[in-house]
Computed example of a mutant assay.
Amino acid sequence: MTEVSKSSKGPASTEGPIVFVVEDDVSVRRSLSNLLQSVGLKVELFGSASEMLESQLPDVTSCLVLDVRLPGLSGLDFQTELAKANIQIPIIFMTGHGDIPMTVRAMKGGAVDFLTKPFREQEMLDAVLAAIERDRKRREADKILGDLQARFEALSSREREILAGVSSGLMNKQIAAKLGLAEITVKIHRGHIMKKMGAKSLADLVKRAEALGISNVRP
């Protein structure tokens, strides 16, 4: 039930954002589609959560407009299923029967907004644009982190040990003493590390190490 497949249609940057709409009411679906397309957004429509689960979704910047009350899997349970599958799509909930516990659960689950029907068109557009921007920034951050991870994995085991020492605030001579190396050897390795990690300065190198979660690792 948690398996949502994504198609490989090329880099996300080559395609515009998509708004996925899961709503069992045909008239509401059509109305939302017309509204979102009127501002140039691509839209994919589904009548239930299971219908979306069975679809191949393009791996592009996107958001999900999700009705709370659906046949089969409810909107809130679908949010939980997506989280379990580590699918980090921003969600905008809509419902004609909202209550405080429902809203709290949705927002704690990371929802961007919770709109009560009937909502103003501008409210929906504002929420969708905010959600798309959130997803764009997340994808950008993931890409940067992925690049850093690839650079880190290209380091030798010795270079990783030295990077851990540098990011822990140790001086070259301290790292050399801990690893049983000559200080000049540590300096040479550090130069290679800077180049491989794409760091412009020591501060930049430490910042990149922190992004990878290795700032407190000691050799």
Rank of each mutant, 00 (worst) to 15 (best):
M107C: 05
R105Y: 04
N216T: 13
G109Y: 10
V128L: 09
R136N: 08
F78H: 05
F152D: 06
I188D: 09
S33K: 12
E183S: 05
V68I: 13
S31F: 11
E210Q: 13
L212V: 03
R139Y: 05
L115I: 09
G109I: 03
D24F: 07
D135C: 13
V21W: 02
V65P: 00
Q88C: 05
Q174E: 15
V217D: 11
M102E: 08
L148D: 01
I193D: 02
A164H: 15
F93V: 02
I162H: 01
E51F: 06
A141E: 15
G72R: 04
G169I: 12
P90V: 06
K42R: 13
G110L: 06
E44I: 08
V22M: 02
P17N: 11
G72V: 10
D204T: 02
A141R: 15
L66Q: 02
G47N: 04
K42I: 00
Q88V: 07
S7C: 11
S201A: 08
A176D: 01
A85N: 07
L73F: 01
Q149L: 14
F114M: 07
V22P: 02
V186H: 07
L73C: 09
S74R: 05
S48M: 07
K137H: 08
E44S: 14
L36I: 06
M171F: 14
S201Q: 06
H189M: 06
L70A: 04
L202D: 10
L212N: 03
V22R: 00
G191Y: 07
E140P: 01
A176V: 04
D204H: 13
E183N: 12
L179V: 01
I162Q: 00
L115G: 03
L64D: 01
G40H: 08
A203H: 09
L205S: 03
E133I: 08
I18L: 08
